[in-house]
Design a protein around this nucleic acid. Structure first.
Lengths: 126, 126
DNA sequence: TATAGTGTAATAGTAAACTAATACACTAAT
DNA sequence: ATTAGTGTATTAGTTTACTATTACACTATA
């Protein structure tokens, strides 16, 4: 995995795992890969994985069972909240940043639409 | 100034200075505050200011004149590129992240519009 | 020419994230 | 009971961002 070196790796791993849950690669109540396996896959140290997982356990996203593994929570409501808050966090980031640059909400929507069109245009050339 | 502790301070200072230029607080060819003054205002060390400024000089946004101060470039084209790339960087971030979460471009625009409405609603209660 | 204001450089020390390595504790299955 | 697979904890060391401090170099001006 390629990390953004401006952001702590353990934080990006948290995001990665949430993402895998949201898109359904890790399902509710399912066991996720072992810490040593994740460390190999993501090419980071076990401690770094551990730190990310500990926070996700604390957030109620994962449950850890000693000797058995880490499991995605069965609490669907919690998972839904998680997805919603991640999306909202992203929107808040871009909204606040562009507001600071004196870009109006109307311009933001237009800029985003333009950007999407641009990306769609690029997709043709794949 | 309050910093996001997930991102290096010097990087956030770069963003802050670009922002002040874009919104017109620091104008082309104008002198920006002295490094020691910025350090006081932003409550960080001079070296941290220096690091941010050095990168902005390297980016062609500022010009440094020993014994006189740091000045915003007179190159309006460069400043325009800067603004454009910052906006695009923000849009790319949110686009990529939401795409990873299997949110379609159409949903993104709708989500952003909804979020804007929500923020406008909050504004009433200020 | 002396002085105040400026950018620049260098050194030392601190804190946090990360790595490396090892050991321990629990579970399940042979 | 042994063993393989798992989570957890600890210790030591590296790297990077940041701070603190001091010194130096240049500019403008009184």
């Amino acid at each position: 995995m390629d990390f953004d070196d401006r952001i702590p790796i353990y934080y990006q791993i948290k995001q990665y795992i949430c993402q895998e849950i949201i898109v359904g690669h890790f399902k509710p109540e399912d066991k996720i890969p072992a810490v040593r396996q994740l460390a190999l896959t993501l090419t980071v140290n076990v401690n770094t994985i551990q730190r990310a997982l500990a926070e996700l356990v604390n957030d109620g996203i994962l449950e850890s069972k000693r000797g058995r593994g880490n499991f995605v929570t069965a609490d669907l409501k919690r998972l839904n909240e998680m997805k919603h808050s991640i999306v909202e966090e992203q929107l808040a980031l871009v909204y606040d940043r562009l507001t600071d640059l004196q870009i109006t909400p109307e311009e933001m929507v237009r800029d985003l639409t333009d950007y999407i069109d641009k990306r769609k245009g690029e997709k043709q050339n794949d």
